[in-house]
Design a protein around this nucleic acid. Structure first.
Lengths: 259, 259
DNA sequence: TCAACGGTTCGGCCGTCGCCGAAGCATTTC
DNA sequence: GAAATGCTTCGGCGACGGCCGAACCGTTGA
């Protein structure tokens, strides 16, 4: 009754097929033009314009003018989170439970998920980080160990910088193609950002799938000590890895939560 | 485009004021009758019936017949999670950012949040658990230490039992009245359940607020070693508590994630 | 300056859906 | 059995909102 009104407004904005398609497209993490969104939604430019106006007014998306183009992106990680949560509900529903993920092999290998990586590479990275004692993974989030902190610093990611933000540092995200967790949150975003920065991966046009460069092939395997078979769909049974006693991070630096 | 259709269906179901109010009411965690939901939504019985039918068909809620009543509840924790996420987006929106939570003092003290406790007591419990080294709280989730495992077992909660389920064991939830994290997930549900079971708290009619019994007053303070001032709204600055080196749980037992 | 292009605004059409009154079942109570 | 209660089904009304064609701005490039 009290906040019900507002959640209804938000949900009803997402609850239109055309808008839902646009938002889903924006879950790729890149800003898209109105035209691109129109084609994703399958409606005309005028209609799209109307939809985008509403979404922007409700602060679900943000706009940026650039020449004669207008680039739209999700307004906040909270919005991405909400859409993700709705996807989870939708997947649970009456429909078949087994279409399990993208047919496109490239998408399964590595793709963007809003602002971080998903797919087998992302899972392999998460496994590697936990296996080497850099990260403790829990139910939907993780803690970075002191060793992990040094590792990331060495990789060019300044965690202290990230900590200043209010946004959760280290979350996990369930991979819909592989049903395994991978890194999200600020850590996940920083990892994607850095990997793009050093040219280990690059974006492709018109798809969320990412390309792994030659440098990336070597770099990831070397720096993260990936097993040689990481491209194979990981078996569920490999999930459990006992980790040796490692130091515990200062509580304060990771004590942020959001839901 | 692929799963967009279905998320639109789900969102549009939530995106009606009457239905949103019903779902919000069900976030209290108790099953409610159609009549109660009708009064929460402010519409007639017929209209309510229609809404409930749609929600049930989409598996957002579940029904249970009991005599001439029909009890409705949220169908799954995923649904609760999605609604919560929508609330977070709605709260962020263009509106005032500062109405901050319930006026009702009882609600601020302790209340249900779907299937677990929220409010100052819940925060104090989470603080106590982390402070005593039973729990490591991260960004949205936590890890239970071996000591914590023993503690919970001693309190009558069998974690091994809980672990069998696929549902996340230990998540956190951001308290909207205090803006601090408290325990959710299976742990949170078990804690509420056990506290009700031993009579430390009891439900009230017509509200999500909980009542702390005399036994609870003593029990919580004693067992969880709560500070004497836990009823006072906790200051943000108390959040950081350095914890001594404590043992790390086996990775496998907590390696479940969902989002 | 003019044409091309991306995007938005306007106006009107049409379908969908929420709403309630009335009637119909089922269960409980007297 | 009859009345009361809780809930659902049916039917029809009304409004909100998505859709597109056409016209309108602003930027870009020749």
């Amino acid at each position: 009754m009290v906040s019900g009104n507002t959640i209804a407004e938000v949900a009803s904005l997402i609850g239109d097929a055309a808008r839902a398609n646009m938002l889903s497209a924006l879950m790729g993490g890149q800003a898209l033009t109105a035209g691109e969104l129109a084609s994703h939604a399958g409606v005309t430019a005028q209609t799209t314009s109307g939809h985008l106006g509403k979404l922007a007014q409700a602060h679900l998306i943000a706009v940026e003018k650039q020449g004669r183009h207008r680039y739209y992106r999700l307004a906040s990680p909270e919005v991405a989170h909400a859409i993700h949560a709705l996807m989870a509900v939708a997947a649970d529903g009456p429909k078949r439970h087994h279409p399990v993920g993208p047919k496109d092999e490239a998408l399964r290998l590595v793709r963007t998920c809003y602002d971080h990586m998903a797919g087998r590479l992302a899972i392999a990275l998460a496994d590697s980080l936990t296996g080497n004692g850099y990260l403790l993974l829990g139910d939907g989030a993780g803690l970075i160990t002191d060793e992990g902190r040094r590792f990331f610093c060495d990789f060019g990611i300044d965690l202290d910088q990230l900590t200043r933000s209010k946004r959760p540092l280290c979350r996990t995200c369930l991979d819909w193609s592989e049903r395994r967790p991978h890194l999200a949150g600020q850590m996940g975003a920083a990892l994607l950002d850095r990997a793009l920065g050093v040219g280990w991966i690059s974006r492709r046009e018109e798809t969320r799938a990412l390309r792994i460069t030659r440098a990336g092939e070597i770099g990831f395997a070397d720096k993260f000590r990936l097993p040689s078979d990481w491209r194979i769909a990981p078996s569920e049974t490999l999930m459990v890895r006992r980790l040796p006693g490692s130091s515990i991070p200062a509580a304060g630096t990771t004590c942020r939560s959001q839901d």
